[in-house]
């Protein structure tokens, strides 16, 4: 196995039971991602982007084939081991933010650190750092319903980043945002990718997101249709 690889997928197939037959959402996927990539899974609706992202995120398991994430084989992890992988190494960003609506911005960002049992003083510092990355230090005490969509997604980014995960998985992070906000959060993520060397894997069909990607993996009907690197990539300011 390639030691630099953060994700390695071999002959991965995922099918869902559909009544008596089954529906194959992913078939024979082979992929490998290295540390520090800023890569997207691109494809039309139903092409299998979320399914693949969920397997990489250890929220689901392959039907056959293998998915190695940070040197752990997703298919053979127990529920406990999968939870531990997510807790320690992975960050998630969702289309619909999925913040804890009744808790403050601070508490939302703090939650992953509670799971890691980090002590209070250290937690506070880490949360404030993360909120500074996304420019929300003045909204510490606000609650999600009082924030705009863009601000909510920035809180979600801070929450995914606060524990400095090795890999961030972002499923349609801009789908609910307008252009200005989309660019803002994408620039934030590019900055974090460069400064913290965090690997990002997106699932998207949004051109705005695609414009920031350094590597584009096209999915079609559950297969990799194309896999290309952007040649003259410039860091976006």
């Amino acid at each position: 196995m390639d030691n630099n690889a953060i994700i390695q997928i071999r002959e991965l197939t995922k099918s869902f039971p559909m009544g008596k037959s089954k529906f194959t959402a992913l078939s024979n996927i082979n992929l490998s991602l290295e540390k520090g990539e800023f890569t997207g899974l691109i494809g039309p609706s139903g092409s299998g982007k979320t399914t693949l992202l969920n397997i990489v995120g250890s929220l689901d398991t392959p039907t056959s084939g293998e998915a190695w994430v940070l040197n752990q084989s997703i298919g053979s992890l127990s529920a406990k081991e999968a939870a531990r992988l997510r807790k320690e190494k992975l960050g998630f960003i969702f289309q619909s933010y999925n913040l804890l609506a009744v808790h403050t911005v601070f508490e939302n960002v703090e939650f992953p650190l509670l799971l890691l049992k980090i002590d209070a003083a250290e937690r506070k510092k880490m949360v404030m750092d993360a909120l500074e990355w996304v420019g929300l230090t003045d909204k510490v005490k606000s609650k999600p319903p009082q924030l705009s969509g863009g601000e909510c997604q920035r809180v979600a980014i801070a929450r995914a980043m606060v524990k400095r995960p090795s890999l961030v998985l972002a499923d349609e992070p801009t789908a609910n945002l307008d252009a200005a906000n989309s660019h803002h959060i994408l620039q934030t993520m590019v900055k974090l990718n460069e400064e913290l060397k965090t690997t990002f894997l997106f699932a998207t069909h949004d051109d705005k997101v695609i414009g920031y990607l350094r590597r584009k993996i096209y999915l079609l009907d559950g297969k990799v249709a194309n896999d290309e690197w952007v040649k003259d990539y410039h860091t976006v300011k």
Binding site: G57, R84, R86, F94, A101, L115
Partner: peptide, 14 residues
């Protein structure tokens, strides 16, 4: 459910 799902995604055990 939303809260539970997101907490599980963040690595909380069931």
């Amino acid at each position: 459910y939303g809260e539970f799902g997101v907490r599980l995604a963040m690595g909380e055990e069931k």
